[in-house]
Design a protein around this nucleic acid. Structure first.
Lengths: 234, 234, 234, 234
DNA sequence: GGATAAACGAGACGGTACGTCCCGTCTTTAA
DNA sequence: TTAAAGACGGGACGTACCGTCTCGTTTATCC
């Protein structure tokens, strides 16, 4: 919430805030975003669709950006990482499901709009990270742990900072490439592209994931999924 | 130009448009963008700074987005790819100079804002690609050609579509990762990160760049820069 | 009011309209009319002078003309018909005080401007009549009744339509002649002219005011004020 | 013309002004006035209808008002005073034909609009009088002279200023009453009203037209047209 | 007949005001 | 105390005309 709950105390005086109003507002925000886009989305419009007074919106959110972040955060929580048996399949899966999310108008519009706002609005950046970005990083962590259990990746190195560097890199490469291809290059993220990209990523990954111990799973890193890359020649 | 040149003919009738006004408008747009940001940037403000009537703006550009695209396109044209001797150094160089560009407020603000607009405005997307995005793809093509001349990369495969797929992939990965780390993760793109990212990229590149001929430069692709990757273990 | 009162109900919901804003707007309109005239009078200027937002003006009046009508109507309500003892003096008095009103810039400018607008704007005509024109007709009715009480004029004829025809005629002749001399011929309406005009009117009046009964006040009508007309010779 | 003819000399050098353009402009002005009214009448619209550049208009007239005065002046010149045999008939005739003119949209709109402008624009007033108002005064003079020839009115008094006072009064009363009833009271000027008004005027006229000599036409003035007034009783 | 000069069409120019939309706040009654 | 309603001061919008200016073109007279 942008505007803090008035009092964290058990029960304040006066009429309590309507939880139904909250739900109606967030739903109306998503619906309006799909229909009329970010720039024509106004607080008055949202209030009208939600059957709520404008003051009720401002009592809860300080700005349109913050309301939209809360409204679309739930969409990004729907991303899942089902176990597809091997690391390559898991990576391709997350690439494709992230791309599918970015095809939903309310998701892509809201994401890009609040990111754009955040280039000017300092306070917006942590809010976006908390509500949207960081939640996807768990996918990387989960997939990495699963691959380590399978023996496809070496265990974490001794230095946890080293692990964080690599995890962040992987996250920026995956999310960045998918977003860029989807929304900037405006090209489809299909299975063919996902396979090619995954090949590049997994191969490159071996070079940046140091082995934790002198002996170990280096061979697994060198051929993480046990298949030959597209082009074959190695 | 957003509003099409009234007639492409050699000499139209009536008073010709002032080229000085064009220059003043684009310069004023960049300056205002730095000072007051995208959301408070208004057509009236730009006109006032440029010493120009609002109508003169609307005669040339249909919307703020289109004007800003033209105004900042020149910034992206300043990206260069100086020959640093080897592919690894060239990649690191372009990563760092692209990141430096994205630290300029007018560049990052304008880029994200117009990308956000483009998620709603269908007509804006090709415009952004032509004026901004596609021009950076030349950096990938130039770097690739240079590395091929050096023997660091194998020559293009027989199928040009295959080349295009790989070039697009490299472009989306580089641009996407740098943008995502800079503007979404909000972390610095410094030499350390550039080195790590380049290692991942070049190593992964070997896996997606098939050799053109049965015999050839596969070894070069496998260790493109002749150095050992960060983590060592191969 | 031009824009209808949103609901005539006893008490509507929401914040009520500010009566102070109404007063400030009408006063600012009169002041601005005097200073800058009709053509340079803008809604924005009025709003600024009244310390009010432009939207507040448009919430109440649909157009400049309607606002000006309401603003100057009060001036025309200030016209009075003091009892000067005889019909002739009363007529001369109303002629002179009407002419004095038409010398006030805001009155003459506003009157002519809205009359001009009304030649094109069908809806404006009844509005002008209600707010400005018809209110002056009471002067004719009052003067006539007073003269009848004095015995200077015969009582109303049996047919009320006949009375209305004569009253309307008198009104058009007096108002028309004064307006025409003041604003069209651009000559002063002074005591000399008022005396001459009144002579013509009263003498002519006898010919169009039929006696109510076979016997009666015809002699009174023939010399309504008991004085000899200017020119003498009858 | 508002803008003076560049040189009154016999023949200047350079391309002469197009007389066809003048005619087209004045005709277009009248036509546009009928269709769209004064307030929406723009110089650009007139130029477009006349098939002429805006500069051509401004080369000839300094303002819309002046152009419109010239455009409609010709309409008022069409007023005629045919000899209907007696003064009463002549007066009723001129009243009705003036009212007919004021029913033409371009005439009434233009007249009221320029009169309204003239309340603010000092320089406009003499221009209106010369081009429009004074030309109608000839009707009063002609009618008066004709009536004097018939013996219906006494000859002019010795003092010409006295004559001017009376002529001006008659003019203001006739024109004022007709304009007021037509455009302000918004009532029809029909034969019935014309008869009533003429009765009032002619009867009143006797009181303000002094006889030129001790003996004379007083009886003619008392019953100028040889008919009994509407109401009868005298 | 070529130079000169003015008027012509076209349309861009710096401006002003428009009437609308939305902002975020404030003021009311009702729950 | 919150809610719905809606008026409030304010700011930007994109449009319409304003009256001026700069073009290339046309039409006349003058040398």
């Amino acid at each position: 919430m942008a505007v803090p709950d008035p009092l964290p105390s058990a029960q304040r005086r006066g009429r309590p805030r309507s939880a139904a109003a909250d739900r109606a507002i967030l739903a109306a925000t998503r619906a309006a975003l799909v229909e009329i886009g970010w720039s024509r989305l106004t607080m008055g419009e949202i209030a009208q669709r939600a059957g709520v007074a404008k003051t009720t919106l401002y009592r809860r959110w300080a700005a349109k950006s913050e309301l939209v972040i809360d409204a679309v955060a739930v969409l990004f929580d729907e991303l899942r990482l089902p176990d597809r048996g091997c690391l390559r399949a898991d990576v391709e899966g997350v690439v494709l499901s992230f791309a599918a999310l970015l095809r939903r108008p309310e998701a892509k519009t809201a994401l890009m709009a609040v990111l754009a706002e955040s280039t000017t609005d300092e306070a917006l950046r942590p809010r976006i990270r908390e509500a949207i970005v960081d939640r996807q990083k768990r996918l990387v962590l989960d997939g990495r742990a699963r691959a380590q259990q399978r023996g496809e990746l070496p265990p974490d190195p001794a230095d946890p900072a080293e692990t964080a560097r690599v995890v962040d890199l992987i996250f920026d490469v995956i999310a960045g490439a998918v977003v860029h291809r989807s929304l900037v290059s405006d090209c489809p993220v299909d299975e063919s592209w996902a396979r090619l990209f995954t090949t590049l990523l997994l191969e490159g990954l071996g070079a940046v994931s140091p082995p934790p111990a002198p002996g170990g799973a280096a061979a697994g890193a060198a051929a993480p999924d046990g298949t030959e890359p597209t082009g074959g020649g190695r």
